[in-house]
């Protein structure tokens, strides 16, 4: 059991926490970072953080409306929370997270899938080592400040991983061995029952620029003819500047 934690940056009397937030463990991965002038660009003034607010909508493509119509409807719902979309849309609204300019903010909403990566056998074949796939959504955002133009440049990577199917690599030979090699008629050969996952991985990396506190929406559908019906993914990102105490600030205030 995990204990949800309240993760808000406006903690005037507490240390400002930055780093990665993981839905699975509800933990902050990285220790708090202490901003020093050497950690940010020399032309940038210290003691500024970028607060990132993200909302992710995913939905299967609807047959009864075009992708454009569906995308428009979902985009409107992102921009206007009063619009309800119903339960055909999955909505992930992670806590706001802070990143110093130039540092990665990392948000995951995923569940661990353990899959066998190595096998061994004494009397029967069994997995001897497992790897972990983080099945879900990972968003990585790196903000940079463009002081000249009063905007925040965002390098945004979204990765969506899901299990597509399980393949049994062992099923090919069952029961066929002794016929293929008559010399070994008394020793039929079998492949073990070895089921391994096949993942579907969609990953997008875009770079855009926003004014503080004004949202940008990115979306995508991809796939090839003949693929299973796909999902539409929309990601809204809003970024703003905070000082070390968690107070919102503008570029104008930040200038010397």
């Amino acid at each position: 059991m995990t204990n949800p934690i309240h993760f808000e940056p406006h903690l005037a009397n507490d240390p400002v926490v930055t780093g990665s937030y993981d839905f699975l463990t509800d933990s902050v991965f990285d220790p708090p970072l202490n901003l020093t002038p050497s950690q940010i660009d020399p032309h940038q003034r210290p003691h500024v953080l970028v607060e990132l607010e993200t909302v992710l909508l995913t939905a299967p493509l609807q047959d009864e409306q075009s992708t454009a119509q569906q995308a428009e409807r979902m985009t409107q719902a992102l921009l206007d929370p009063a619009i309800s979309l119903g339960n055909w849309v999955s909505r992930i609204a992670p806590p706001k997270i802070l990143a110093p300019p130039g540092e990665q903010a990392h948000i995951e909403s995923a569940k661990n899938v353990n899959y066998p990566a190595e096998f061994q056998s004494r009397t029967m074949v069994s997995p001897s080592r497992f790897d972990i796939a983080r099945n879900g959504v990972t968003i990585t955002i790196t903000p940079l400040l463009d002081v000249e133009n009063g905007r925040i440049d965002l390098d945004i990577s979204t990765e969506i991983l899901g299990i597509q199917e399980w393949l049994n690599y062992g099923e090919a030979g069952e029961g066929e061995g002794s016929q293929a090699n008559p010399g070994d008629a008394d020793s039929p050969r079998l492949a073990a029952n070895i089921k391994l996952p096949v993942f579907k991985l969609r990953s997008f990396r875009s770079q855009t620029a926003v004014r503080p506190n004004e949202p940008v929406v990115l979306g995508s559908v991809c796939g090839e003819n003949g693929d299973e019906p796909d999902r539409l993914v929309l990601l809204q990102v809003r970024a703003r500047l905070l000082d070390q105490s968690g107070r919102s600030m503008s570029f104008a205030e930040w200038r010397p």
């Binding site: 899959y115 066998p116 990566a117 440049d153 390098d155 991983l161 597509q164 393949l167 391994l196 996952p197 096949v198 993942f199 579907k200 991985l201 969609r202 990953s203 997008f204 990396r205 875009s206 770079q207 855009t208 620029a209 990115l218 979306g219 995508s220 559908v221 991809c222 796939g223 090839e224 003819n225």
Partner: peptide, 24 residues
């Protein structure tokens, strides 16, 4: 048609898209 998203990138920096099937 292989659908690829349109991309936005800062000048000189790459935008990347991957649509993959990952098997073990």
């Amino acid at each position: 048609v292989i659908l690829l998203p349109d991309l936005e990138a800062a000048p000189g920096r790459p935008a990347v898209v991957k649509d993959l099937r990952r098997c073990i």
